[in-house]
Amino acid sequence: MTTTEPSLVVESLRKDFGPVAALDGRMVRVLNGISLTAHRGAVTTLLGSNGAGKSTTLACAQGLLLPDGGTVRLLGTDPASGGSALRSRVGVMLQDGGLPPSVKPMTLLRHVARMYDRPVDVDALAKRLGIDSFAHTTIRRLSGGQRQRVALAASLVGNPEVVFMDEPSAGLDPQSRQTVFELIEELRERGLCIVLTTHLMEDAQRLSDYVYIIDNGRNVAQGTVADLTAEATSATESRTLHFTADPGLPIPRLHDAGSLIEEAAGRYRVEGLHSPAGLTEITSWWSEQGVLPTSISMEPKNLEDVFLDIAQGGTRG
């Protein structure tokens, strides 16, 4: 196997649930043609709102659910028939954690490690994740962030090559979040293939090498964070310009540049810039007013804008 071969290939995944009583016994199509590819040494993110089909996609990729259509190849194998040999190379962090409440973290982690031939050093891993500080508390009594760290450790004790993380940042306090993010980045550097889901743009933007935006069980956009934001900021689309200058400047009537408003004292925003001519109009106005702005920025769209564009498109369609 070459190292460039993808660790995970999902093609045209389809999954129906039901029959659902509330829908007169009809089936619900939860996944409707999801496709994705994930490579080693990279973080691949499924971004979507709750109910978009992210967890179901992961469950099919892990072999926990049998798809009704499409194919999954995980480390070159069908996960439904990969057996213990395949499972031993894949770590899973479930959204609800999957942790027994009456057990202490170290008891659980040691037990899970004993299912593997070559586990990692459990004590060192627990220390790295700060679990040693609450090792003698039952899982029931841990905070959300502490539980999340135990679930993360449980997905890593087996020394996996691929790790699935369903909403790894859910319910984390800022400090735990930082710990978890740094850990994910380190795992990427160590050559693991990381597949995670999130509904938070910020997390996707911070962590991902490649993002699949999914909605209603379908792929709606994909690419690197840069690709996705650049694509949305296409040549014909309007941009927003921010600048700061003296407060209280007279607001001009603009022809090419859309509208200018003073958001807060001295902070101005120009919306609806469609062409370089609009920019010229603004700079001419500065020149007339004798204004030299203290800062100017024209930001590309962030992932959130992309997501909102797509969501609005979906509503219109």
Partner: peptide, 29 residues
Amino acid sequence: PTPSPLPEAPTTGARRSNAASLTTRVVRH
């Protein structure tokens, strides 16, 4: 510097199963 406790993906060589044997797993569980 202590070695990192984190997993590391093998870059070369055939990937092999990392599972303990079935009997071992069942007895341990």
